[in-house]
């Protein structure tokens, strides 16, 4: 397999994740689309790690995974506390920090 195949797959998955962030109104689904974008980045790093014959890319995947885990924990805690205050997780309802 060529490097391009993996890069195209990664670009497609990243685009789908970006579309999900833009079109969804449920805050949880927006966060899930962010995780999808991080996964696309991981595919890219692993592909370059193989085709450059280095293993540093795989180490960086571990760091991205730990950042994703931290982001999921803090983000979901934020969503839970937002839900306690407003009784909804619709992103259109949260306009207090808009400008």
């Amino acid at each position: 397999m060529l490097l391009e195949h993996y890069l195209i797959l990664s670009a497609v998955v990243f685009g789908i994740g970006m579309t999900g962030v833009l079109i969804q109104r449920n805050l949880i689904l927006i966060f899930m689309s962010l995780e999808l974008m991080l996964n696309a980045v991981n595919i890219n790093l692993a592909a370059y790690s193989k085709y450059l014959s280095q293993i540093s890319g795989q180490v960086f995947i571990i760091f991205i995974m730990s950042v994703a885990a931290a982001e999921a924990a803090v983000g979901l805690a934020l969503i839970v506390s937002l839900y306690r205050n407003k009784q909804t997780i619709n992103s259109d309802e949260f306009k207090i920090l808009k400008w």
Binding site: L22, I23, Q24, R25, N26, I28, L29, F31, M32, A72, A73, L76, I79, V80, Y83, Q87, T88, I89, N90, S91, D92
Partner: peptide, 18 residues
């Protein structure tokens, strides 16, 4: 973790951005 929060909060969706 996501599944917990989805089931803990309101499971009904809000559709796409209008």
């Amino acid at each position: 973790l996501y599944l917990f929060v989805v089931m803990l909060l309101n499971p009904k969706t809000h559709g796409f951005a209008k």
